[in-house]
Design a protein around this nucleic acid. Structure first.
Length: 130
DNA sequence: AGGGTGACGATCA
DNA sequence: ATGATCGCCACCC
């Protein structure tokens, strides 16, 4: 079912990118960076959620790329969907450590999203008339 | 141009 | 919970 949403997003994106793609992905990158920097300590968000919040749905993998190249970002506050730590080995351990240091709690191996997932303002959708 | 690659995401067996 | 698939995106040969 939601499988379809991915292809639909794809269409939406490609059409839109064909018409309004004046700036490659610099703008997107800038927005993604802002979203990541806006994450308060003790909260987390997912790659996909960041992408959507930045108005770039479906670009979870790009979020990762940005996360890797832009230094100084609170990278540990970005996890996989459902709160999964996607890094491996030492890196995963460090991310978990950093999160715990900020008071983030886990449910098994995943971050307790119910409690720590940052809610990006969804005014875009909410403000149908404002 | 064509194919491979990821700190991804959703589904299904 | 785990692994396989398939879709998606920009990069990098």
């Amino acid at each position: 079912m939601k499988r379809q949403s991915q292809s639909e997003l794809g269409k939406f994106r490609s059409e839109k990118s064909k018409s309004g793609r004046s700036t490659p992905d610099n703008n997107n990158q800038a927005r993604v960076v802002r979203c990541i920097r806006s994450l308060p300590a003790g909260t987390v968000s997912s790659y996909g959620a960041i992408a959507r919040a930045a108005g770039w749905p479906g670009a979870a993998r790009q979020v990762v790329r940005i996360l890797r190249q832009v230094r100084g970002l609170p990278w540990h506050r970005v996890v996989g969907a459902g709160g999964a730590i996607k890094l491996t080995g030492e890196n995963a351990a460090e991310q978990q450590f950093r999160l715990r240091m900020e008071g983030v709690t886990f449910r098994g191996a995943r971050v307790d999203m119910k409690v720590h997932e940052f809610q990006f303002s969804k005014l875009k959708r909410a403000r149908s008339k404002n």
